[in-house]
């Protein structure tokens, strides 16, 4: 009833020539409105694949993916596109900025597509967001002129600019130093608390994980567990995943 994402028995297969790779092998998942959910798991475990399905940029081989109460398999291409534009904000692992547009234009683009705001309002909204991610001085730069971390922040701003109900973030802090990473997490957290925006983000970083309400642990295309942030962090540490910047007391 209050779930925004509902996934049941989803299988995703990729065909590579004659072999078939199973990226997801029967995943079920329920995400409530207003959750701040983390998806964790080793490389290749299927995090990106899962987010792509939720983000309606890819389709499942089998199973049901419901987003905002709609079975995505039953939507037309048009309706899926509308859903991506108006309901979902997606921060891609590889940023996917439009190379020929500058920072400002990249962030403004979804607003242009929505056609709800005039040019002045768009400007204010975009510049405000760019300031929050610390890039207002780079508005005129092209993506190629930015560092990986800066590009990531443009992608964040673009995903948030339409005020979507659901934000999907694929390793949103992977390229950021911890200070900027924290800043981005704080921004997301603030939106989550003030506006009730739902966040689903994948991460390796347990420092990011600890902000989550819950952590979904993926391995080999299957959900291993849904656990609290605390357990997940402990689990991560026990597996020997070195924290990016361990607290002083944790050092042996």
């Amino acid at each position: 009833m209050n779930s925004i994402v509902s996934i049941r028995d989803v299988v995703k297969e990729y065909e590579l020539g004659t072999t078939v790779v199973q990226a997801l092998r029967g995943v079920s998942l329920e995400v409530m409105k207003g959750e701040f959910l983390s998806i964790a798991g080793p490389s290749g475990s299927g995090k990106t694949t899962l987010l792509n399905l939720i983000g309606c940029v890819d389709t499942a081989t089998r199973g049901v993916v419901e987003v905002a109460g709609k079975d995505t398999a039953k939507l037309t291409e048009r309706e899926l596109t509308d859903l991506r534009l108006n309901t979902i904000g997606f921060i891609f692992q590889s940023f996917n900025l439009v190379a020929v547009l500058n920072v400002f234009q990249n962030v403004e683009f979804p607003l242009l597509l929505q056609r709800k705001l005039g040019s002045k309002e768009r400007r204010d909204r975009v510049m405000n967001l760019l300031e929050q991610v610390g890039l207002h001085t780079h508005a005129k730069h092209r993506p190629s002129e930015l560092s990986g971390g800066q590009r990531q922040r443009v992608a964040v701003a673009r995903a948030l600019v339409t005020d979507p109900l659901l934000v999907l973030a694929d390793e949103p802090t992977a390229n950021l130093d911890s200070a900027t990473g924290n800043q981005i997490i704080d921004l997301m957290k603030e939106l989550n608390q003030k506006k009730g925006t739902t966040f689903i983000f994948s991460t390796h970083d347990h420092k990011v994980m600890q902000h989550a309400n819950a952590v979904i642990r993926l391995a080999d295309g299957k959900v291993l567990a849904r656990e609290s942030a605390k357990d997940a962090v402990a689990h991560a540490l026990s597996l020997g995943e070195a924290p990016a910047e361990a607290p002083a007391g944790a050092r042996v």
Binding site: E77, R78, T81, D82, F92, N96, F109
Partner: peptide, 16 residues
């Protein structure tokens, strides 16, 4: 093509 994919992913309709 990558650019078109991105535009479509952020919500641009095929017809657009």
């Amino acid at each position: 093509t990558r650019e078109i994919g991105t535009l479509r992913a952020v919500g641009m309709q095929r017809r657009s």
